[in-house]
Design a protein around this nucleic acid. Structure first.
Lengths: 366, 366
DNA sequence: TGTGTCGATGATATCGGTCCCAAAAGGAGA
DNA sequence: TCTCCTTTTGGGACCGATATCATCGACACA
């Protein structure tokens, strides 16, 4: 049978029962209420929740009944404080209103969920100033790790990250000097790959559509693609006169349509165009069609991101594919692995998830 | 001048300095470190952070310097425990990979950010079983309010919500019997509006494209639109034989294409189609074009949600518009208002953000 | 019967903040 | 000068969990 010692006296409850005066509590059942009802100590209740095998089945049953009867839900804030583990992973993105970033969040959640970690999501709307505020707010929640898209761009933000002393994973870009860990692909290589592909198709008047780099609202990853594209053009001895930077991030259909319009006015002879995003590319295709230009017979267009819409339009869009959901999952695995091992056994991870060119009908060589 | 009493002795630090043995702490500076460095009590530091006006400017300056020197970031978990305010608002959505839901999250964040509230996001992938697990995990974080898309569908989940005793806001649908507060629109009315519109255009063979209602993965809001659409057809004496439910939520381009294919095989004479989502509708348009059917000359198609892509395709898509970002903002305002006033002054809110029909070229009357 | 080991459970300190009230200083008014 | 009030600051308990170590039995073995 179970042992019959008296449970802990619990000074706060000694004396007359039901004396509630002056108590700060919220009225919701606490672990103490459960322990009293079940006739065990708080520690035993805690064990039933976090590691049931340590408790005798009979005791466990009593405790579980008490939990159910009271509708007890443990307070993780209190638990975090005591255990020094919050179960939070922070995620800072430029925006959620982008299918690929949302896919990263989705993939991450799928993995973290299993280990009862929660994602704390913040977004910056591509604003470098907001980044710092958000980071401070996130760190106050004591996440056990933080996931960022690319390095932070303020000195102060980087300092805060280092001081936080938690694993940092940079995703969706592979910086040459990662702060800590990195899971992603090279946006610069995306640009170069796109340029080489179009050059290989025999085009010589090649353009690009990206966002402006002025102000604080900047899509750094998109700009990396533009840079890679431009450099490849130059290496190949081609002009970068048809590279258009227009409007502010995030880019979408309307951006592509406008930028394509500008480009066509600047150079009506342009043969092929790379857009930093499929959304932009789709907008460009539509703009061409409105102007009576046939894609791909008169202008070839390709994008980046392999958004679902690209597959559906006519002609289907040639693009560069990155599996963002898998990227999120992979990041989750890296972090779980990192967090489950002692600090001194953690080596830097740098994982390139790669990219692939998806040829569809919107590009047709000369 | 400032007062010169000795600051609190702080038993934990008495005796020889630097004796770190056996301490549970994390190594990060705490409010106690700041108070020692600044030569004030912890309470004064706390005040400088949460209500600076209560502290003399000179003292405030000392404290702020100590905070900066140490790189101190307050631990919100500890603060939450003591103050009974976590600063969390929970948000449970079917998915984030949907521009409209992402827009809700976005709008909410914009508003809550100002008052330093954080959104805790969970998603269920349209799975009723997952809903309950996620809800339990969310409530363990002690959010001060919770935002849901429509009522939870498990008895147990509803019970947990009521027990949590916090404001509940249902968004993106207006249930006839809201649990607490509701901000949204009637999906049922969307369906009826769409049907009335198509009927008014003189069509009599009218179809609809939605998701299957089998299994646990169900898009209840989409189904409400389907139901409203069907009922309006019947009220008007028309057949609902062309209403197609196919595939599982979430629906997208490929769904629309497939479902449209099925519909055309079932009834090649169909004149007009309503899809539960613009994404589906776009897929349907593309499918028609692949089959050589002209939209809108041979088939009219309309959708719901006013997704950006609908504006860009040829022909532009007729749809029903709801401003989801504003919906999120409105919800945020309601919640902030609710949380800033005493509990007994809180009345139930029911806000209809309305909907509007956007006529474009994809529907052409007989 | 004595003793060592192991499994189950309890007692207490602690995590890092805030609440509540008390104390000290400074100024106004009698 | 004394009292009273306001402003500023501090002391200690407390929020609701968990870490850590102690304790109690039961059992094996000598």
């Amino acid at each position: 049978m179970t042992s019959q010692r008296t449970p802990e006296p619990d000074a706060r409850d000694a004396g007359h029962a039901g004396e509630e005066r002056g108590r700060r509590g919220s009225g919701r059942p606490t672990i103490r209420d459960v322990s009293r009802l079940a006739g065990v100590s708080r520690m035993t209740v805690s064990r039933v929740i976090s590691d049931p095998d340590l408790v005798l089945p009979a005791t466990r049953a009593k405790v579980n009944k008490a939990i159910a009867d009271l509708g007890y839900v443990p307070d993780r804030a209190a638990g975090s404080l005591a255990s020094r583990k919050t179960g939070f992973i922070a995620l800072m993105l430029p925006t959620l209103t982008n299918a690929n970033f949302a896919a990263v969040a989705h993939g991450l959640t799928e993995i973290l969920r299993e280990e009862d970690y929660h994602l704390l999501i913040a977004y910056t709307d591509y604003d470098t100033a907001e980044e710092e505020r958000q980071l401070r707010a996130l760190l106050a929640r004591r996440p056990e790790a933080i996931v960022l898209t690319g390095a932070p761009h303020r000195r102060q933000a980087t300092r805060m990250l280092v001081a936080a002393d938690i694993p940092v994973a940079e995703v969706a870009d592979l910086p040459s000097q990662p702060i800590d860990h990195a899971v992603g692909f090279s946006n610069y290589q995306v640009g170069r790959t796109a340029a080489r592909y179009l050059i290989g198709k025999g085009f010589t008047r090649i353009g690009a559509l990206g966002a402006s780099t002025e102000g604080t609202v900047i899509d750094h990853r998109g700009e990396e693609r533009m840079r890679g594209f431009e450099e490849e053009l130059r290496y190949s001895g081609l002009s970068d006169a048809d590279v258009v930077r227009h409007g502010s991030a995030p880019v979408s259909f309307a951006h592509g349509a406008q930028a394509m319009g500008l480009l066509l006015e600047r150079d009506p002879q342009v043969e092929a165009v790379f857009a930093v995003s499929d959304l932009s590319a789709v907008g460009a295709v539509m703009e061409c069609q409105r102007r009576g230009l046939s894609v791909p017979d008169q202008v070839s267009i390709m994008g980046f991101g392999d958004f679902e819409i690209g597959r559906e339009i006519n002609p289907p869009l040639t693009t560069i594919h990155v599996d963002f959901r898998a990227l999120g999952q992979r990041t989750g695995q890296v972090l779980l692995d990192l967090l489950s091992r002692p600090e001194d056994a953690r080596e830097h991870q740098r994982i390139d998830v790669g990219l692939s060119l998806v040829e569809r009908a919107s590009v047709k060589g000369r």
